[in-house]
């Protein structure tokens, strides 16, 4: 456990500001990747740290501080998504965006990025969370299991499902 985590675990009141400073951008990024809505992610990132503050007495140092914070963030985002109507993204919509990329003059990156973003929205929320932590945050399967409160087997299954789904939505259409 690093010094910050140790101080946080021991209830050092002054350490909270440092925790916010160190993890706010990462938490915002994770929230965005799960919620896929910038405004909601900005709001949720702050709410996550409110919850971190309120629950600070429960952090016993059994897991790394950032996986504990990620767990709070993931739970809050997934709970939030349960309550809002999640837009479904038909496969054809993503394929259409990819096919509309110009044949000559190189790839249209903005269009590709939009297609990729739409494909991410098309993932079920938990798969989205696992994919974000594994692929973008480079967290280990064990760390993600801690952060999502599930097993390493479930994390692997979610990750594999996510990649297969993305491949279905992007794989063949991604060739330029």
């Amino acid at each position: 456990m690093d010094e910050l985590s140790t101080r946080f675990a021991h209830g050092d009141e002054g350490v909270f500001e440092e925790v916010v400073e160190r993890y706010s951008r990462k938490v915002y990024g994770l929230c965005y990747r799960i919620l896929r809505d910038e405004e909601e992610a900005r709001d949720m990132a702050q709410e996550v740290f409110v919850r971190v503050y309120e629950k600070r007495g429960k952090f016993g140092g059994r897991s790394a501080l950032y996986t504990w914070i990620y767990r709070i963030a993931t739970n809050m985002c997934l709970t939030h998504l349960k309550r809002r109507r999640i837009p479904t993204v038909p496969l054809e919509a993503v394929e259409g965006m990819l096919e509309a990329a110009p044949a000559g003059g190189g790839p249209d990156y903005s269009r590709l990025e939009r297609a990729v973003s739409q494909a991410m929205v098309g993932l079920p929320p938990r798969q989205r969370a696992v994919f974000a932590m594994r692929f973008f945050e480079k967290m280990s399967v064990r760390e993600i299991a801690e952060a999502t409160g599930t097993t390493t087997g479930a994390v692997k299954a979610n990750y594999h499902h996510a990649v297969r789904r993305l491949k279905e939505m992007l794989g063949e259409g991604g060739s330029t």
Binding site: R25, R33, E38, Y109, E113, V116, K167, G174
Partner: peptide, 22 residues
């Protein structure tokens, strides 16, 4: 196909909030 998929996935960007937010 998997590599191409993951290359595309890597293009996914997190929008940067305005500086005032941070």
């Amino acid at each position: 196909s998997l590599r191409r998929t993951l290359d595309l996935a890597a293009m996914d960007r997190v929008p940067e909030p305005v500086p005032a937010y941070w």
